Simulated scan of single mutants.
Amino acid sequence: MAACWEVKQLIDRATEKVIIDRLEQAHTLLTVNRGNEETAFITRVIDRLPEIEKDIILRKYIQLEATYITHFDIYTDMGVVEGTYKKMRLRALYKIGAALGIVDPDVNPITLSEG
């Protein structure tokens, strides 16, 4: 339980929204075949995430059907409990936010290879 609390502290709700907005912009541009430097960068960052975090981000924010997929759909399909899913999703969002310069990795440092 304490580990989940630590992850929640990596980013606040407003920062989470900013990161998700950038992912949704990338999703839209990729959907209409109008990727740009930022979408290419975001794609590279996602590719560097641990597989389970990458899977969550792709399903929820990047894939064509992402708009229609719920968090519940993802964590039940993955066979993980909601709390574990939230921890992994927030950790992935933190890493993406750090790569995009939205969060300061010096405040709560974790690496892209941490799971």
Rank of each mutant, 00 (worst) to 15 (best):
D73C: 03
P50M: 05
I57Y: 07
F72Y: 15
D77N: 14
K60R: 15
R59K: 14
Y75F: 15
I52L: 12
R59Y: 01
K87Q: 12
I52C: 04
T70D: 08
I56A: 00
K87I: 08
T84S: 13
T84K: 08
E53I: 06
R59L: 08
K54M: 03
Y85D: 04
E53Y: 01
I74E: 02
D73V: 01
I74Q: 00
T76F: 10
K54W: 02
L90R: 09
V80E: 00
Y61I: 05
A66I: 02
E65M: 03
I74T: 15
L90K: 09
L64K: 06
T76K: 14
Y75L: 10
I52Q: 10
I74D: 04
E65T: 02
T84G: 04
F72K: 15
I56H: 04
M88V: 03
T67I: 08
T67K: 11
L90C: 00
T76A: 07
Y61Q: 08
T70P: 06
K87A: 07
Y75Q: 08
R59Q: 10
Y68Q: 12
I56Q: 04
L64M: 09
E82K: 14
I62V: 14
T76E: 14
R89C: 00
I56S: 04
G83N: 13
V80Y: 11
L58N: 10
G79V: 11
L49I: 00
I52F: 09
I57L: 03
G79M: 10
K60T: 03
